[in-house]
Design a protein around this nucleic acid. Structure first.
Lengths: 351, 351
DNA sequence: ATGAAAGCGCTAACAG
DNA sequence: CTGTTAGCGCTTTCAT
């Protein structure tokens, strides 16, 4: 019942606790023979160093925290969006942490609440995490960033497009991705292309719209205001926006939605309007979420390297790359490539 | 930079550190006036008790761990199943933990690996979590349960149908749910009902099949072997199984899939066979995952109370209900109700 | 290459 | 009601 401590191991191996400590931390200056004895004793006793003690006495906590916005996550759950955005981020971080002997703590924070300063301050003081991964849109919160800086806690911002130079980040070029998808549609021969925007609380939404507009303009295509429909990433909003687009006098021959769920909504709207896809209407999504493969036709979409992003972010944190980065070395900015995945929902327009 | 400690607060409030400790832990025997002074000082200093120190000195760690199977989760990710099973479980646990000042640690464990004993043993020794939530199928792993018992760590098994009396659990009656769905189809007038089973590594898969078989037999309907098709919860497996079912000489008029993703696969197979749903073929799913609303027609399915289950499990852990339960008091077994959600994919058969 | 001593910041068990 | 004294199990100095 009483757990085995470093003293038990030291006694059994007949060495000092310091030697045990050295072995457990892979420190130098231990003869192979001693190391062997300690390892044997630790194994026999089933010893594992107590994390709290290590963290209290030492300078590391072996904890990586992931900050996730509370209200948006609850929203997400209630609206049953069906995106596995956070899940994919978490997967990369969990696997990478585990590999390095770290533990992943998931913390909800109200990044829009005035109490965020108190809340995050307390969190950092209590947890003393060795690193923090900031998911959108918390990655853009200046109070959070300031507290992190003040506490000297290394962090990585995941996905933010906008505020540059605010701290290390790992992200994707949403503007370029949206541009490429729009170019893809134009390349197929589409000229009237409708766009459905995402939830404005996420920075990526604006970036994607920018990419769309930029690509249209670059090809000399005018962007009719009516072709820009608001959405919030949900199926319903996509359905509604697409219905509006398809009711236009000169209706678009293609619709580019800022999320796969909205693209599915557009697909449903097309079916209701008795338009076939991709014959009468091409539909493109964004995210390559699992649902993009559950529709007929399957969606042409943009694959975001979310798992790779969180894996890299975790690696940076654990390797202390960020710490060095803060001292002026190492990369502070990693841009990961996206992929346009061409499936069955986009094709040349009829006629 | 140097963090503020209990001594700083005590000095500023001109009390002993013990009084500060009492206030921070809401212990009795502190005059309101003292409490006020301490609170003021703590607020001014931005003090939050260090978790490691609390956990090292005291008997609580303020950490709840969620054990998730590593290889299945990676499988899940690679196959892009699109289920938000774990996400919903985690949501309930995270919100509930946060409300009580606890923190949620997500740990991947290889529950099928021979090293699981060593791995989980080390995890418990290092973390000393105040409670562990076991998700399927780790909740059925006897080595894990044994280690937990030996370590005296309270835990709750989430979802397990099978091994009873092995420890506190919060679950749903999968057998009854599958029976009810089958009854629903029979009630609509269906007699030839195909069934697609789930991944056999999950206990729920067998339970759902049992429910289906029981309902059929209870109504005096024979279960043709060919009507039981194997699946693994994925869209593709559902597609394949449904294709096989629809190729039968006497094809079923309804298909009951053990997951929503497989039901969507069945929907796709029906479309390819030029069968309309629900006109020519009724399709039912299981889980009420977000994707069940992204199809046309939307799926009739079973809603699992996953968030409620994990919320309750967390509550039990934090309130120490389990600890008492282990001493003989309190409920060791919570059965939460499911809901049959009737949407558009099921209807009476033609003719 | 190894060990002894001194805390890390807090709670527990007592005193008063 | 409040304070004092010991540790919790480790890592850090700093000796040897």
């Amino acid at each position: 019942m009483a757990s085995v401590t470093i003293y038990d191991v030291a006694a059994r191996a007949d060495v000092s606790i310091k030697t045990v400590s050295r072995v457990m931390n892979n420190e130098p200056n231990v003869r192979p023979q001693m190391r062997e004895r300690v390892l044997e004793a630790a194994g026999a006793l089933g010893y594992a160093p107590n994390l709290s003690a290590r963290s209290l006495a030492g300078s590391r906590s072996f904890v990586i925290a992931v900050f996730v916005d509370a209200s948006l996550t609850l929203d997400h759950w209630r609206s049953e969006r069906g995106s596995d955005y956070l899940q994919r981020i978490q997967l990369g971080a969990t696997v990478e942490s585990r590999g390095a002997g770290y533990h992943l703590l998931v913390e909800l924070i109200d990044h829009d609440d005035p109490r965020v300063r108190q809340e995050v301050g307390a969190l950092l003081a209590a947890l003393k995490p060795d690193g923090v991964i900031l998911t959108p849109p918390s990655c853009d919160n200046e109070v959070v960033l300031e507290l992190l800086d003040k506490a000297g806690t290394p962090y990585v911002r995941l996905g933010p497009e906008k505020p540059e130079g605010l701290g290390p980040r790992v992200h994707m070029d949403d503007v370029a991705a949206a541009r490429e998808m729009t170019d893809h549609l134009i390349g197929l021969g589409h000229r009237r292309i409708g766009f459905i925007t995402g939830d404005q609380r996420y920075g990526a939404s604006q970036a994607r719209r920018e990419g769309y507009v930029a690509a249209m303009k670059a090809r000399g295509l005018k962007v009719d205001k009516a072709w820009l429909q608001p959405g919030d990433f949900t199926f319903e909003s996509g359905h509604k926006a697409a219905t509006a687009l398809l009711a236009l006098d000169e209706r678009p021959t293609a619709i580019f939605a800022s999320s796969d769920e909205m693209a599915l909504g557009a697909l449903a709207a097309a079916a209701e309007a008795e338009l076939s896809c991709p014959g009468d209407l091409s539909v493109a999504g964004f995210d390559d979420s699992p649902v993009s493969r559950l529709s007929r036709p399957q969606l042409t979409t943009i694959r975001q390297p979310l798992v790779e992003m969180s894996t890299l972010a975790t690696k940076m944190l654990i390797n202390g790359v960020t710490r060095k980065a803060e001292a002026g070395t190492g990369p502070r900015d990693e841009l990961l490539p996206f992929t346009l995945i061409h499936r069955a929902s986009t094709a040349p327009p009829k006629g």
